[in-house]
């Protein structure tokens, strides 16, 4: 085996280990957005950028998907807690507009945490 062969094999093995670690331990990227409003749930891909208008109990919340992330752009509430939550990027990240009854959460291959405290 030449030096390049050995380097190639080493890199391959490392890449393979990383792959196992990434895909089999549940620390993966999010790939879907679940939007719940008025008891109805819709699922969107994080793959293509778009803006989604969701009708809640008070009016329309606008949710934006961009570069594999999602966020509330506007929502008919006064606290704007949902908008302040900012971008959701990892599986398990969740934002909700409680007054309007809209929940946005990222689902994916795996979650790093079982629950989030704040």
């Amino acid at each position: 085996m030449t030096r390049a062969d050995k380097a190639g094999l080493t890199v391959s093995l490392l890449a393979l280990l990383t792959l196992y670690g990434y895909l089999w331990t549940g620390i993966g990227p999010a790939n879907q957005v679940t939007v719940t409003a008025a008891g109805e749930t819709r699922v969107f891909s994080l793959g293509h950028d778009q803006r989604i208008a969701v009708s809640g109990s008070r009016g329309e919340s606008i949710i934006e998907i961009e570069q594999g992330r999602a966020r509330f752009v506007t929502s008919p509430c006064s606290g704007k807690v949902c908008v302040h939550t900012g971008w959701l990027a990892r599986a398990g990240d969740t934002a909700a507009c409680v007054p309007n009854g809209v929940i946005v959460s990222l689902t994916g291959h795996g979650k790093q945490y079982d629950s989030i405290n704040f």
């Binding site: 398990g92 790093q112 945490y113 079982d114 629950s115 989030i116 405290n117 704040f118």
Partner: peptide, 8 residues
């Protein structure tokens, strides 16, 4: 169970 604590 793994609990994440969000940055304040």
């Amino acid at each position: 169970w793994r609990i994440g604590i969000r940055h304040p």
